[in-house]
Design a protein around this nucleic acid. Structure first.
Length: 999
DNA sequence: TCTTGCCCTTA
DNA sequence: GTAAGGGCAAGAT
């Protein structure tokens, strides 16, 4: 090997596990051989061979090998038996694929190296050192951060799945030290995945700090007594030996006596027929074709390779082979496909991936490249440089920007303000972007940031007067000819309506992301920028600071503000160019256009209206609750024999289970005794007095702190009403969420709680109407799973829980024992939540076996429900997502994890998502139509709140009776005409002076 | 001052 | 058993 050579070392393990976990399971057609990971591996290896790893010409690899782990037993387990001890066994369906992947490597004429007693990492380290010693360049293809210690001037690392290259600077970013100090840091910080202990209380940040100060581990340990922080010093002294062992574990062995010399790893020409033969035998049609085309191998004349996999027959290769197709399509299809969906045509039965020929590159894998348009490429590939943005200081320039927006027809728009609360914020500036890299900021309200109490605070020069700027902007923002693009537009929309501007038409990149990728991660701009543009925008903290010293945006210097604000518009525009094309290609345009985008003005108006709360009533209640708490406190302290902080679960646990010696039940995940209400209630049932007093105190404390004390703080100084903020993109299922304050969890179950609800009142001369869907989720389930008894019961208007009980236990509905109905009700809820015997038992306070029997009986009576659940599970495993009746997707990217508990959790979530999500879709459809229907009927009702299955309106007294049926009709017919449910929807609506009585 | 854990409120 | 937001205590920084 010489200085002209370039060695590529592929970490086989990373590739295998990435391929397995990133992709849904896939089996070979004739015999069910699992080949998902093999498929992923082959695709990755082929891509590597095609594209190489180095963009520069002349740097093509001269040597290459895939390195595998030989077995789990290595010299490290001798040093520290616990090393990697927590690693779960590989999943069952991955085991036969290990051998196949080695076959695949050879089939592609790539060297395949492993050696007993050593991890792949040690072999990689050894080869890398030998090659580097000869002056050759080395590229390590891996996602394993442990290999970062090998990076050097001629050694780089590349994560092909994430398309990221790591050089020395990147190591610094990750570990806070250079490659030569990585092991020092790792031996302190440890690694929970590999079970490297490290030193307790020291994480990556602290470890880097210490190593930078002391140089290396040994120096640090010998001078540990100099450390100021008590806990840190003690741990370093106590766990010194553990740190030394950790260092041995993380240090890669660079002198493995390799059986295959590095010179033998020279690349060889790919043997086309051999590769094609292997791929044919696997049944990967798409890749087989591609490899045949590239290598010139004659596809038709090549027989599938003949090799044995224990337990599986060799296919005959006579055209019977085809890539397995996901088997669980159309779980919700009976409903979705049997009814017309003129609006939501992209229903459950049409996922783009499952129908495509690319079954060997299955759905769920993020392949941004495949959806790229030219514009999207430009959006991604031109650099983002905040120093190039323009600060607009004259009306003339602003007019030119507006003209540019008309010219292009689209403009990204963002506002900068003094507050996160759109109801309180003052406009400080706006930014525009008309093309990637072409963005500006228009400062409008910046003041002298240096100004203290005495001077300053005046408007800075060089800013267009607000009114003049708005006069130029408003026509463009309201013009149909210009599409406005924003990230989380609801905020800007609400703000701008306060300045008399109604933005339309528009697109919202946050909602685009949510429509396409709900469940895959956040939809915030910074996160989307990282994910799609590989760019980290200037953090808000960097401009305004955080915590106590945070300044409002109007105090930010205009040049800094320009860089920050214009970048936001630039990034938003680029995100739109990346995401918008996916809408059509992934058939999600209807979901976006009917269920997401129209919600923006609807919710903004609801937020702006707010709701009236009676401040005096809350204040009185707060006093009452405080008195009640004080009374309980006296008795609690007397029973405990001492005073303590009742609000501290830790102190309470010490009293109950330590001092008083009560039998502890559950433990929390950190190992402490649980003091949850269910535990305390069990103790109370055994006759202990203290626990029931604690429960009573907690209830009062919760009501007081969260509601009576916090709510008045949200009363707007001018409107005198409470304005919540709804999030459209916070949940995986499609529900809304409400915050600041959360008006979706106002108490209702207890008498004391309902007093808080009474404080939500109608304005004088008005009533509140509360309209809620009855059993909407069970109705949706009855429709989706097509359950005859349930459908009939709903059609006949029966009590659904009593009917369930009657079916299950064979008792008549007339004169039914309430406890029997209660059990059936719990089961019905359990079904919606993806039932487990464990959960049902906990809910009903019965044994696991008994709960199990209930579930069995239920499934015998309603076999369609069981079939539905099984089908959803198959669907989510195959596709990585599930769909609602209107085509909304909920993704569960980690559902194929090998951890059985996590897997079961994701499966339950996936069972629940189409039910909860379909109900959420129905609410959205009702809300989108409601305002028009009311105004067409010349009614003045105002929609104020949404609480998942309930809508709250404020209505003039005289119109109550006319309004009620209109609201009911819109809600009950919300599915039409896209879909006719096979079950009627029922809405109960009532009017009263306050929310409690209306509900 | 910030983060995590625990507990509780809703549908 | 599903989906959320939020207050307070305690510990780390």
């Amino acid at each position: 090997m010489t200085a002209d050579d370039h060695l590529i070392l592929v970490d086989g393990s990373t590739f295998i596990f990435r391929a397995y976990h990133a992709l849904p399971p896939l089996t070979r057609k004739p015999d069910g051989l699992p080949v998902g990971a093999v498929s992923g591996f082959c695709n990755m290896l082929w891509k590597l061979l095609q594209e190489g790893l180095s963009p520069e010409p002349g740097d093509e690899p001269t040597h290459m090998a895939v390195i595998f782990d030989h077995s789990s037993k290595t010299f490290r387990s001798d040093i520290y038996p616990e090393y990697k001890a927590h690693r779960p066994e590989p999943p069952e369906d991955l085991i036969p694929q290990f051998g196949l992947i080695r076959e695949a490597t050879r089939a592609f004429s790539v060297h395949c190296v492993e050696q007993e007693g050593f991890e792949a990492d040690d072999l990689i380290a050894t080869y890398a050192r030998q090659a580097a010693a000869a002056g050759a360049r080395v590229t390590i293809a891996s996602g394993d951060k442990d290999l970062m210690q090998l990076i050097g001037p001629t050694v780089k690392m590349i994560d092909t799945m994430k398309g990221k290259t790591f050089e020395e600077a990147d190591v610094f970013e990750k570990f806070g030290v250079g490659p030569d100090k990585v092991i020092e840091v790792q031996s302190l910080a440890g690694d929970s995945v590999d079970n490297v202990p490290g030193v307790p209380g020291i994480g990556l940040k602290t470890a880097a700090l210490l190593i930078n100060e002391f140089g290396d581990l040994e120096t640090l340990l010998s001078r540990a007594s100099e450390i100021k922080q008590n806990k840190r010093r003690e741990n370093l002294i106590e766990f010194a030996e553990q740190a030394r062992v950790s260092k041995q574990l993380v240090t890669l062995k660079q002198d493995v006596p390799v059986l295959v010399p590095v010179d033998h790893l020279a690349v060889t020409e790919i043997d086309g027929p051999k590769a094609v033969g292997f791929l044919k035998a696997m049944g990967f049609t798409t890749l087989t074709k591609r490899v045949a085309e590239t290598t010139g191998a004659e596809l038709a004349n090549i027989e599938p390779a003949d090799f044995q996999v224990p337990g599986w027959d060799v296919p005959d290769g006579k055209g019977r082979l085809s890539p397995a197709s996901p088997t669980a399509r159309g779980v919700a299809a009976p409903a979705a496909s049997s009814t017309s969906q003129s609006e939501a045509g992209d229903g459950a039965s049409s996922s783009p991936a499952s129908g495509s020929a690319q079954a060997d590159l299955p759905a769920g894998m993020m392949v941004p490249q495949t959806v790229a348009s030219e514009a999207a490429d430009a959006a991604r590939n031109t650099t983002i440089d905040p120093s190039t943005y323009e600060t607009v200081t004259t009306v003339e320039r602003l007019k030119e920007w507006v003209a540019e927006a008309y010219e292009v027809g689209t403009v990204a728009f963002d506002t900068e303000t003094t507050s996160l609360d759109a109801m309180q914020a003052d406009l400080v500036g706006v930014s525009l972007a008309t093309a990637p890299g072409k963005a500006c900021y228009v400062p409008l309200g910046h003041v002298d940031g240096e100004g203290d109490l005495l001077g300053g605070g005046g408007l800075l020069p060089g800013q267009i007067p607000l009114g003049e700027a708005l006069a130029v902007l408003k026509p463009m923002l309201e013009d149909r000819a210009v599409l406005k693009i924003a990230q989380n537009l609801k905020y800007d929309w609400l703000l701008m309506t306060r300045y008399g501007v109604d933005i339309a038409p528009f697109d919202d990149t946050m909602l685009l992301s949510y429509t396409l990728d709900a469940g895959k991660g956040g939809n915030g701009m910074d996160e989307l920028s990282e994910r799609w543009l590989g760019h980290t925008p200037i953090p808000f903290k960097e401009i305004c600071g955080s915590g106590k010293s945070m300044i409002t945006f109007d105090k930010v210097a205009i040049d800094k503000a320009t860089a920050y604000a214009a970048e936001d518009a630039d990034v938003t525009l680029r995100l739109w160019q990346v995401l918008k094309p996916r809408l059509a290609s992934e058939r999600m345009a209807t979901v976006y256009e009917t269920l997401e985008r129209p919600m923006v003005p609807v919710l903004a108006r609801m937020e702006r209206r707010g709701i009236s709360v009676d401040r005096q009533m809350l204040s009185r209640l707060s006093g009452d609750f405080a008195q009640g708490m004080a009374a309980e406190e006296d008795e609690i302290y007397a029973l405990a024999g001492e005073t303590f902080n009742i609000g501290s679960p830790k102190q309470l646990g010490d009293i109950l289970f330590g001092k008083m010696g009560l039998p502890g039940g559950k433990k929390t995940k950190t190992g402490a005794w649980s003091t949850s209400a269910s535990v305390l209630e069990d103790l109370a049932a055994e006759g202990h007095e203290l626990p029931s007093k604690i429960v009573a105190w907690r209830q009062l404390s919760k009501l007081k702190s969260t509601y009576t004390d916090a709510l008045p703080g949200f009363i707007h100084p001018e409107t005198k009403r409470v304005h919540t903020s709804y999030s459209l993109a916070a949940t995986t299922t499609g529900r809304l969420s409400s915050s600041e304050p959360n008006l979706q969890n106002i108490p209702v179950r207890t008498e004391a709680g309902r007093k808080i609800r009474k404080a939500f009142v109608a304005t004088p001369g008005h009533k509140l109407i509360s309209a809620d869907y009855s059993q909407i989720e069970l109705r949706v389930l009855a429709h989706m799973a097509d359950i005859p008894q349930l459908k009939k019961a709903f059609a006949d208007g029966l009590d659904i829980h009593a009917m369930t009980a009657s079916e299950m236990f064979g008792v008549p509905i007339e004169g039914m024992d309430p406890s029997v109905r209660r059990r059936a009700k719990a089961i019905n809820f359990g079904i919606i939540y993806g039932i487990s015997a464990f959960g049902l038992a906990a809910q009903l306070g019965i044994g696991r076996g008994e709960a199990s029997d209930y579930i069995k009986t239920y499934f015998e009576r309603f076999p369609g429900i069981r079939d539905y659940m099984e089908a959803v599970k198959k669907e989510v495993h195959a596709n990585g997502y599930v769909t609602t009746i209107f085509g909304r997707k909920a993704h569960y990217p980690d559902v194929n994890t090998s951890n059985p508990n996590m897997r079961a959790f994701y499966e339950r979530a996936a069972i629940n998502a189409p039910i909860q999500g379909s109900a959420a879709d129905i609410l959205r459809r009702a809300m989108v139509r409601m305002e028009d229907r009311l105004s067409h009927s010349r009614l003045d009702a105002q929609m104020l709140l949404q609480v998942h299955d309930e809508l709250i309106f404020e209505v003039p007294d005289a119109q109550v009776e006319v309004t009620l049926p209109v609201i009911r009709e819109v809600m009950e017919k919300a599915c039409e005409p896209a879909l006719t449910l096979s079950v009627p929807l029922q809405v109960d609506a009532r009017a009263a002076d306050n929310w409690d009585e209306a509900h």
